[in-house]
Design a binder for these strands. Sequence first.
DNA 1: GCTTTACCTCAAGTTCACTTGAGGTCGTAG
DNA 2: CTACGACCTCAAGTGAACTTGAGGTAAAGC
Lengths: 157, 157
Amino acid sequence: MSAIAKDLSVGAMAARAGVAVSTLHYYEAEGLISSWRNSANHRRYDRRELRRVAIIRAAQSVGVPLSEIRIVLDAVPPNSVVTAADWARAAEPWAARLDAQIETLQRLRKQMTSCIGCGCLSLETCPLYNPRDTLAANGPGARRWNGAPEERSTLES
Amino acid sequence: MSAIAKDLSVGAMAARAGVAVSTLHYYEAEGLISSWRNSANHRRYDRRELRRVAIIRAAQSVGVPLSEIRIVLDAVPPNSVVTAADWARAAEPWAARLDAQIETLQRLRKQMTSCIGCGCLSLETCPLYNPRDTLAANGPGARRWNGAPEERSTLES
DNA sequence: GCTTTACCTCAAGTTCACTTGAGGTCGTAG
DNA sequence: CTACGACCTCAAGTGAACTTGAGGTAAAGC
């Protein structure tokens, strides 16, 4: 155990990455991480997979769904030696997302107390809510915007 | 239509708020918004409810689950005249969340290209991933952290 | 008078990201 | 030799946030 393990069991991976074993099974089934089997049919993970898990969790924490995480991870083939440039290129779409998200959060934060109580009933000008911004498109409702009904076209009142 | 409507139909609300009618039904069933009925048993919404919907969507976009949104909205009784101070007090817990989230995003953004390609296999020191930070506790995995298995105790390798 | 349109209810279905459970296999420790 | 812990598979369950569908009403337009 004190010897540096070249590869990891699923339990060790789970412990080190701070996720459940079942989560690793799931990620593997989803093609986000990969492993090989030892003679006992137990999963063995390259230590590199730890980083992949870290990236998955980090990306999730900022609202990236697994489907998009997969796209980025797929750009970095497993078992390859990855350069910083490789990762930078793969993660490029996330950089933009993060920028947008930071900006929106700051806007929100700054105007939360003022706007939230501002009494404005005009959503058009309310900084708290502009449904067409990047966050709205990628955010939580990042479910499917099944096309907002009517696109607030008429009903100007 | 050009006359200023004092109250709104569910269709009008949906159009103006940019959500589906069924979503408004759902929010109402969940007690997040309220309405009364006209003679035809159709929902009528006070225009104030528009702002509530805006707040719901805004909060969701930064990862606040409906259960927590309800708590804040419940602190502001419906049909009451709400002052800025009322809202500021109710939204206080979100301010802290936003601060934490902004900070984490900025850290992530700044170190994304460097760390993601840094080749470090030491998650302990990887700025991309520290599973015990505020975001991890509130974030996407804001599902239930059913207690990370083993707390990365042993297995130092 | 008929048809459309907008609404109604209630139950069931959907997606995502997992978790839980049942039943079985290894390999080491006592 | 048997017990235990760590692992295996596969199917089914879970919770959040909605959406979809079936079946029905009510007023407004042609």
